[in-house]
């Protein structure tokens, strides 16, 4: 059946794979760095510290936290087919940045970030309110409403950007990529990762929320507080990653679904795997994005989008109605 958490083999294999991917990521790039150079070439060491290591860390932190966000959102929405970047959270964050950029062009990055978080929260709250009215026996309505709603919010952002000749500016946030990551320009991702790791302490609560409102009330859960906490984690992490590296769609969708297939939806058991798998899949995508037309790069969102959407379609069509 599914893999058991008590078995150490998958864990060891996963850690080995992660180490290999990280090493590959650190030593991939236009400037040639090899291990020997690190010991006698100060310039290589500097490059490593300023560019390569931050990039690898940024990819790992983003991948892990976006995957956790996707999982939390799926619990809040009680639907396997939603995630922040397809259901309006990411688009809301982008809209927030554009609006604040127009209203206060001189605003600091912190203010922009807060605007992105606030707009993402509004957008997510509207989405969750919308899907509450949908019948629970038709799960595919939820992602459809999410796509329409996300498209709608994204279109408003694009329209404003188009009118004010800010399309290129907007593009930076809508298409995520890691080539701009350097020391001093990615550290906010640590905060995003810490926040999503905090979800582990309320993992049971999120699993219970996924059982539905009545069940949550029956078990004495503060339904509203946990909903709010979940939304806050999703929105802050999404907004931080949109501002820092841009939107990377499908991570929050694909990764939790793979984990769910392998080990189920008990978050206390699956959260670490979701985080690790998210980090590794985005790291692999980033490597492909860097190598596919070396020495140039394609955006990681394109690479992950191709694999992610293919996987999503497979998931939609291969899912048995009810396995007995």
């Amino acid at each position: 059946m599914a893999c058991r958490t008590t078995n150490a083999m998958p864990l060891i294999a996963a850690i080995l794979l992660a180490v290999v991917l990280c090493i590959l990521s650190i030593f991939t790039g236009v400037a040639d760095i090899n291990i020997a150079a690190l010991f006698n070439d100060p310039q290589a060491l500097w490059l490593l510290a300023v560019s390569r290591l931050p990039r690898t860390l940024a990819v790992v932190l983003t991948g892990g936290s976006l995957a956790i966000c996707g999982l939390i959102m799926q619990m809040l929405a009680r639907n396997k087919f939603v995630e922040p970047t397809t259901a309006g959270t990411g688009q809301g964050a982008a809209l927030g940045i554009i609006v604040i950029t127009i209203m206060a062009p001189q605003a600091s990055l912190t203010i922009k970030m807060l605007a992105a978080i606030a707009a993402a929260l509004c957008s997510t709250a509207i989405f969750l309110a919308l899907i509450r009215k949908l019948p629970t026996d038709q799960p595919f309505l939820v992602p459809l409403v999410g796509l329409v709603f996300g498209g709608f919010v994204g279109a408003i952002a694009t329209f404003i950007a188009y009118q004010l000749d800010l399309l290129q500016y907007q593009d930076v946030w809508m298409n995520g990529e890691f080539s701009g990551v350097m020391l001093g320009r990615y550290e906010m991702l640590w905060f995003a990762a810490a926040l999503s790791l905090a979800a582990y302490f309320v993992a049971d609560q999120f699993t219970i929320i996924g059982l539905g409102k009545d069940m949550a009330l029956n078990l004495g859960l503060g339904y509203r507080q946990i909903m709010l906490l979940g939304m806050t984690i999703i929105c802050v992490v999404t907004a931080l990653s949109v501002v820092t590296v841009g939107m990377i769609p499908f991570v929050g969708l694909v990764v939790p679904n793979i984990a769910s297939r392998m080990m189920g939806d008990n978050l206390r058991a699956s959260l670490p795997w979701v985080a690790g798998l998210g980090a590794m899949m985005v790291l692999a995508s980033d490597l492909i994005a860097r190598l596919v037309r070396y020495p140039y790069e394609v955006p990681v969102s394109v690479v992950f989008g191709i694999f992610g959407s293919a996987f999503f379609l497979w998931l939609l069509f291969s899912r048995p109605a009810h396995a007995r």
Binding site: L211, G220, G264
Partner: peptide, 29 residues
């Protein structure tokens, strides 16, 4: 609500559970 949850338990008529949980995990909740 958490005090009441130790006094009364309720199961409604329709329960759509989308989560993939093992029986033991569900009962454990």
């Amino acid at each position: 609500s958490d005090t009441l949850a130790r006094i009364l338990a309720v199961l409604r008529q329709e329960n759509v559970i989308a989560s993939r949980l093992r029986v033991r995990e569900l009962v454990g909740f």
